Computed example of a mutant assay.
Amino acid sequence: MTIKTTRFDVADFLDSEEAIQEYFRQVVEDGDPDEIVRALGHIARARGMTQLAKDTGLGRESLYKALSEGSKPRFDTIMRVTKALGLTLTVAQA
């Protein structure tokens, strides 16, 4: 008997605005910069990278590279992506 498995992809579960907002809120709250970039990549893939490229004015390939694991995107790229995705980064006293 063989077991068939598939690769887990967070983007598959980001199927509503509520799920996306809660996921991003938790990641930002945890505060790990690498995880924030990775989360933006998951959200971008869930929403559609082609549309995000149009909305940000960045190339699709550049977005994939900027939001991939281990990348260190510029802050202005992060801000363009969050704005295009309809997300905000909020500052609060800890």
Rank of each mutant, 00 (worst) to 15 (best):
T2E: 15
K4L: 05
K4V: 04
K4Y: 05
T5G: 09
T5A: 08
T5K: 14
T6C: 06
R7H: 05
F8P: 09
F8M: 08
V10L: 13
D12F: 02
F13I: 01
F13D: 10
S16A: 04
A19T: 02
A19I: 02
A19H: 04
I20E: 09
I20W: 01
R25K: 14
R25Q: 15
Q26M: 09
V28P: 03
E29T: 08
E29A: 13
P33S: 04
I36N: 12
I36W: 12
A39F: 06
A39H: 08
A39M: 13
A44N: 01
A46M: 01
R47D: 03
M49P: 07
Q51N: 09
Q51S: 11
K54A: 13
K54C: 06
D55I: 00
T56I: 02
T56G: 07
L58Q: 01
G59H: 03
R60A: 14
R60P: 04
E61P: 00
Y64A: 07
K65H: 14
K65L: 09
A66C: 09
L67H: 05
L67P: 06
G70E: 06
S71C: 11
S71V: 09
D76Y: 00
M79G: 04
T82D: 09
A84S: 15
L85T: 01
G86Y: 00
T88R: 10
T90E: 11
